[in-house]
Design a protein around this nucleic acid. Sequence first.
DNA 1: CGGTTTTGACCCGCGC
DNA 2: GCGCGGGTCAAAACCG
Length: 205
Amino acid sequence: MNFPENPNPNFTFLSDDNFISPFMDNFDFSSLMFEVDEGGNTGLVQEETSPPTSIVSSETLTGESSGSGRAITTLSKKESTFDCKNRGSKDGEKDPGHRVAFRTRSKIDVMDDGYKWRKYGKKSVKNNTNKRNYYKCSSEGCTVKKRVQRDGKDAAYVITTYEGVHNHEIPSHVYYNDMVSSNYDHDNNWNQHSLLQSIHISPPS
DNA sequence: CGGTTTTGACCCGCGC
DNA sequence: GCGCGGGTCAAAACCG
């Protein structure tokens, strides 16, 4: 599947055993939210509360509890919403880039998506007792940023927001592939994933 | 020793 | 104009 305006155009989600998730532990895409509108919301789309105005597309996966269930994927695209929310044409100047926010159920705060991130800030935000962490892609010339924050309502969920588009390959792309072939099993987790993710990057044109 | 993390300060936009 | 909240900077500490 290809999401429009996905900051990682080659970043695909598949429920196929040929793929492996870089996300450790008890991991579950409870919701995947694409956002192109910054107005009104604080950068996040809460699936329960927010109207679909700012959700471009969403994906819900279930079957996480035991980590061995089948992944059920639903995908809905609201292209009309996406079109009308195409901002940034103000002066034709700065477009901060695409933003993707998704909420995952995970024990760990920072999920390894294959890129190298450097932490550059931490803030406590309103209506959330947990801190929000700010990361930049540590690759030279890459300005992609990432915000990671525990859900204030349910600390079992982690809200991750990507901003920008990577202009380079995933540094650990080969590493992940190697993990697949080398029967990575030390934690008794990876082999049980119902949702496996593949990251495939093609060189920028 | 170089890269990363920590953390307080600073900056900026927005609402009142 | 002021205060608040969110985002970023940068120096020091930390770590492999």
